[in-house]
């Protein structure tokens, strides 16, 4: 099972699409590793610089409809090869969310008010996340501040995370 802990990158915008996560000009690559340098290459967001910010973090907390647009699984792959195994948002585009769990990664929804609170308390700080998958709780901490946030994931999503993805699960079940 992958690790769902790490330093948190806050992306304060809704509707970040998969073209922004990994632009189509890099879709000619046929290995996941080749996508490593291009994660969030076209995300234009004040204060965000992919070359500086991507290497320092491994968790994303963001707003609504993350991963909309193209079905490209290159988006989760570009995250994965940069050790980002979890994205936390108000909600996700269907295909992106499924792709994350299909790769044994997590895309977890929290209420907008909770996301607001996380941004207010932790954005702009050196924030760490520890994920307790047994108790379904996120533990955020920064500068002595702490916050524990319960979350839910479906039985299917949990099974995919535990199986390391959908190919393994489907091959043993169908």
């Amino acid at each position: 099972m992958k690790s769902f802990n790490g330093k948190v990158l806050f992306l304060d915008r809704s509707d970040i699409n998969t073209d922004e996560i990994i632009p189509a000009r890099y879709l000619t690559e046929i290995t996941k590793e080749a996508l490593k340098s291009y994660l969030l290459d076209d995300l234009s967001l004040e204060g965000f610089n992919p070359r500086e910010d991507v290497p320092k973090h491994t968790v994303i907390v963001t707003r609504a409809n993350f991963g909309c647009g193209s079905s490209r699984e290159h988006a989760p792959w570009a995250l994965e090869v940069n050790d980002f195994n979890i994205v936390i948002a108000e909600n996700f585009a269907r295909i992106f969310k499924q792709n994350m769990f299909n790769c044994g990664m997590m895309a977890v929804q929290l209420e907008p008010a909770v996301i607001d609170q996380l941004f207010a308390k932790f954005a702009g700080k050196q924030t760490s996340l520890t994920t307790d998958l047994e108790k379904n709780v996120f533990h955020f901490s920064a500068d002595g501040e702490q916050e524990s946030v319960p979350f839910t994931i479906s039985g299917f999503d949990r099974a995919l995370v535990e199986a390391g993805g959908w190919v393994g699960y489907a091959d043993s079940n169908y």
């Binding site: 079905s71 091959d171 169908y174």
Partner: peptide
């Protein structure tokens, strides 16, 4: 429905796909 590469891979192999 549009899907990612993993769903496609399982579709190619098994002829099934999971949906909510």
């Amino acid at each position: 429905a549009g899907v990612g590469t993993t769903d496609l891979e399982v579709g190619i192999l098994k002829g099934v796909c999971a949906f909510h």
